[in-house]
Computed example of a mutant assay.
Amino acid sequence: MLVVEDDDRVAGALCDLLGRHGFATARAAGVTQALAQLDDAVDLVLLDLMLPDGDGFDLCARIRASRDVPIVMTTARSDLRWRVHGLHLGADDYLVKPYDARELIARMLAVHRRVASGARAARPPAPADDVRVLDVGGVRIDLGRREVTVADRPVALTRKELALLEVLAEHPGLVVRRERLLSRVWRSAHEFDAHTLDVHVAAVRSKTGVRSVIETVRGVGYRLGTG
């Protein structure tokens, strides 16, 4: 995993802690070093947001644009809007400093478990041939290829955004309860899960340009649009 932290003392303590819990770590002190070290061997990024040569949010967006590696943000910014912004950019989790080391390890292990089995668990059972490709208001969802296009142009969705569409597509037009979506896509119960779901729904709507691609059923959950 890659620890992106500019404070030498904090980075050293983190790497020691993570090493004792079985994580093989590399350290980057800023945006430039992080991008240079990001390769296929990196299976998780622990990302501090206050960096000397750029903003951690920007780095998160740049990583997510090309890689699906899980990202856990750590920062002293405790305001909910920053947490939501980080999740919107594609972070898998967000931890506010100061945090307990036990919580950090627990959350990182949870992310590892979700990544190890999440792709299989979030992907719905193979649908019948006649529903492998869905068209919702001009948004083409190809479940077989796991691709989403609008007007023949690919839409760059994150792993979680695509998984959300896949779960909804299991029963097109039927309501899926919020709890089921959280269980299937995130398999966690963090305090901001409700915000996480809403943020990802908003992201899918924004990226496709079709708000009705996911319809809100107030007080219950969401469903894939009916047309």
Rank of each mutant, 00 (worst) to 15 (best):
V148Y: 03
A76S: 12
T149H: 08
V10F: 06
L157R: 01
T32G: 10
V111H: 10
A128M: 13
V217Q: 02
E191K: 12
S78K: 11
S117T: 15
L59Y: 10
R27I: 15
A65S: 04
L89R: 09
V84A: 07
G137Y: 10
G19P: 11
E5W: 01
P127A: 06
A119T: 11
A156L: 03
I105E: 06
T196Q: 10
D152P: 02
M108G: 08
M73Q: 10
A156H: 02
S117P: 02
A106V: 08
L224V: 12
V155G: 10
D16E: 01
D39F: 03
L18C: 08
D130C: 14
V148F: 08
M108H: 03
V167D: 08
V139D: 04
P127H: 07
A110W: 04
G137V: 09
S117L: 15
S183Q: 06
D79Y: 01
K207Y: 07
D193Y: 02
R159F: 07
A11W: 12
D68I: 02
S212W: 03
S183I: 00
D100N: 03
G137I: 11
G118L: 00
G144D: 09
G137M: 14
P127V: 10
M1T: 12
V133S: 14
V69D: 15
R223C: 11
D135Y: 12
A61D: 14
G54M: 11
L168Q: 03
D193S: 06
R177Q: 02
V133A: 13
G227K: 12
R159I: 07
R187M: 04
G209D: 02
G56Q: 01
V213W: 05
I141C: 12
T74Q: 14
V167C: 12
A126G: 12
V210S: 05
D6S: 10
R153I: 03
D130F: 13
F192A: 06
A169N: 01
L224Q: 14
L164D: 03
P172L: 05
A11H: 13
E103D: 15
R159G: 04
V150L: 05
R102H: 14
E161R: 11
F23R: 08
H195K: 13
A202Q: 15
R140L: 14
A61V: 12
M73K: 11
R187K: 05
S188Y: 10
T149Y: 08
L104F: 07
E103T: 13
T216W: 11
G227L: 09
I63L: 04
